[in-house]
Amino acid sequence: MYGRKATELVKEFASSEPGQLSTFNNDVFAQVLEECNGHLLHLEPLMMNIQENENKLRDKRSEEEMGMSEDERGNSEAEKMLIQSAIKSDQFGALIHHLSLLRNKRCLMAYVYNRAEVIRNLGWMVDSVLPEEIEEKLSGTEKEYFKKHANTLQSYMAEVDLHLTVDMVPPKDPYIKVRVLDDIGEVVLSDQVANLARHAIMFLRRTDAEQYITQGQMEELTS
């Protein structure tokens, strides 16, 4: 059945957890594209048929206008009916293919567009470096898109001279208690030089800690 494959794609996206990505479904994606081109192959000859028949019909009409006998007139009526019904059936066939193509296009676009939205939201959370386990789920152009979009965002932040990817939650306290999950080493923070060794529990400025938290190198301890 036409359009079934494309529905699979959309369903796959809709049933995944919001904000989560599954691996880009290259297989089905390519199949749907193939189906689209198949539709075009059907569509083109149909359109040509319609064109031809319409031309024939026009010729008949002009012949009629030239004048003809009763007999001839009857014949030509019958022929006209035949041509018209041929046009009709070709038109319906073409319409089916056209609509299936549209539907497939919309499904493909919805799939890519909604994934792009998830990717953009990731961009807000991870600050221009994608973790590997996410990156391998993206298609080539999606990776490209992520990079380009991150650049666009970066250049906006440079323009307004304000870092926007920190401070994602309203601050309650300027300092928060965190546990370091990774050996980060000696870092210069805004108010101190700290040695961020694994498992250390520290009291840091929220803005300092946030970047590490989003990268998964620290966790906030809430009491």
Partner: peptide, 24 residues
């Protein structure tokens, strides 16, 4: 506006490369 301009180009390129260029 600059940001939007950039965004639109990025997204359009992305859609074109992944879907549209492969369609009739």
């Amino acid at each position: 506006q600059q940001f939007a301009e950039g965004c639109a180009i990025d997204l359009k390129d992305h859609l074109e490369q992944s879907v549209l260029s492969k369609l009739p």
